[in-house]
Design a protein around this nucleic acid. Sequence first.
DNA 1: ACCTGAACACCGTTCAAGT
DNA 2: ACCTGAACACCGTTCAAGT
Lengths: 210, 210
Amino acid sequence: MNPGTPERPRLSRRLIAEAALAMVDRRGVASLSVRNLAAELGAGTMSLYRHVPSREAIIRDVVALLLDEIELTAPAGGGWPEGARAVARSYRAMALRHPRAFQLVAGASNREPPVVSYARRLRAFYAGLGGSVEAFEQNWSILDSFETGFLLFETQALLESPHEAEAMDAETSELARHMAATVSESAYEAGLEIIVEGLAARLDRGAGRL
Amino acid sequence: MNPGTPERPRLSRRLIAEAALAMVDRRGVASLSVRNLAAELGAGTMSLYRHVPSREAIIRDVVALLLDEIELTAPAGGGWPEGARAVARSYRAMALRHPRAFQLVAGASNREPPVVSYARRLRAFYAGLGGSVEAFEQNWSILDSFETGFLLFETQALLESPHEAEAMDAETSELARHMAATVSESAYEAGLEIIVEGLAARLDRGAGRL
DNA sequence: ACCTGAACACCGTTCAAGT
DNA sequence: ACCTGAACACCGTTCAAGT
């Protein structure tokens, strides 16, 4: 049992990613430094570089963890619109679980391996729903843009406590309050409905090709 | 005329913001350091702090410059839908002029003064169009989320040269190409049309309240 | 062979010394 | 009074010295 040695689990790329996500969730992206992370893991700074090539790679791994939390399941027989709604809700649930980390998802390039592999999962999911893969590929960016943009605003609003009305005049703080109130579950659902119905109508008219 | 002294214009908050935007446009957000910026302006690092309180404040000023580039004008008599389309196109034109800087706009909090004052301009613009200010406030986040999310993807795609297919297998690079192709002017117009029409239908049904 | 401390080239910002 | 260089407390990463 080697008593005296602390029971710290052995370093691995996965463990580093999980600790990084926990750190971002707790203290924000700015606090994620290789040095802080190593200290948190009880390791020397350079030991992390045995498992991971750079800070950027750690962030990519965090994005992969977050995208993996999105569940791709839908009620049977609902077709692609019901599938799109289910994914949108699972995406939002992930964002609200990780409001400080969500900006990493929004900022991730579509070229990064974790994003590409999420796109692959998503395509297979739509194919399994009986939808046209081609239609999915032509239109997913419209729905995804709305979801990502909305959740970026909503997670930001979530993190800003209302006590910040310090140096604001009455009209400004009223406007700020109004803006914060427009990002809500019902607004998300309303936008989702408009786009899903709009895309369905376009596809029915055979105008799905951009 | 004081010959021998270089004809460098005197430092000001505005000049610093403009130089910062130029630097981000040219070399990206990561390159924007107070030290680099001061060197570019031919000043000592600490001289900037006479005009601006922090790096974060400089970034806020850059966001203000970018939001000021969005033109709020619409063809007369078109009502709010025509106004929304005009703003959306002007927003996109700004984003494409500043693909590297756009992430600063997307990442800006709705609480920051430049964003609040842009919201104020926008509200006045819609009011002038004869639209209901209340309906605008209830629904702007849906349209704005789509636009911001889409432009975030499009500006990212714009900056990634296609030569990056290095370590990708054939299927992955094909998927990446597909994803990049879905962010285009016609996709933006399609999404815009779906949302504007959807919001118009909701408002006609009196369901504008979220 | 594997691990990691020291060192390098950067940061943003404080503060006191310079004019 | 105004300006700013030196210094402080950080970064990510390289590299060579340690085991």
